[in-house]
Design a protein around this nucleic acid. Structure first.
Lengths: 128, 128
DNA sequence: TAAGTCACTTGTATTTTACAAGTCATAAGC
DNA sequence: GCTTATGACTTGTAAAATACAAGTGACTTA
């Protein structure tokens, strides 16, 4: 018996994507992982200032939806680092297009770095 | 004196994009306009079931941010149709990448139509 | 033994979203 | 002329998501 009910708003893939990662913070956590951040404190230190309870909740949800997986980096006390799965790195084109759009149309915002725009999902896979 | 304070979370273009269109409904309204919908009732009839007050609010915000513009289609009583500006049609690559991602990674969701995946922002410009 | 670090959790306030109902201008039918 | 219908909303209130401040637990270091 399935305990979790995804219950998407419709069968439209765009709508479904937004149901999974269409909140205020998820894609910013994914962005941080694209940039090599891996630990709780790394994510908290980003300039947007995600609240700590929201971060804990988003890491849990991203793991439940298979976008992120965690690996222990020490055992006393047990602590984890978080990495993108293939499902997670495949969000890179979404992030790139959002950044391109804002850079083109929102004058107040910064310039995305070239390495980011040129990157491909495979480039983000951790080698260890 | 500037009355509206955009106040984005950071200068990161991704973060800025999410501050503008990163809510639960905005991109679905943009999607509807990509599909040729233009009137209040058209948007309400989409399968996701946007609440009417949220729709009114999103149309106003999308217009204020220059993503959408409205044109009257009758004068008694005065009624408007809503269309994407260039800033709006340039969101198409974002929608496409989100749809591609969900189609690849979320098994329950539907298949995006070829015309949608093949479309380019210029194709969406209204000719009248 | 005391203070510090890291990764959280808990409690409550604020903001956003949801749902139901009502309004307003006008048109259409009887 | 009066009632019903239509389209595009607004208003009121409930529910859910997010924000902020503070606290907890397992250690490590001084």
């Amino acid at each position: 018996m399935n305990t979790n009910t995804p219950n998407y708003r419709s069968e439209c893939p765009l709508s479904t994507a937004l149901d999974v990662i269409g909140d205020k913070w998820s894609l910013l956590v994914v962005r941080d992982m694209c940039m090599g951040k891996a630990r709780y404190g790394d994510f908290l230190s980003s300039p947007e200032g995600i609240p700590t309870n929201i971060l804990a909740n988003r890491l849990r949800r991203l793991e439940e939806t298979g976008i992120v997986e965690k690996k222990p980096y020490q055992i006393k006390p047990l602590r984890y680092e978080y990495f993108l799965t293939t499902k997670g790195t495949d969000l890179l084109p979404v992030l790139q297009q959002l950044a391109i759009w804002a850079h083109k149309h929102v004058p107040e915002c910064g310039t995305p770095p070239d390495w980011f725009l040129d990157a491909k999902p495979d480039d983000l896979v951790k080698n260890h």
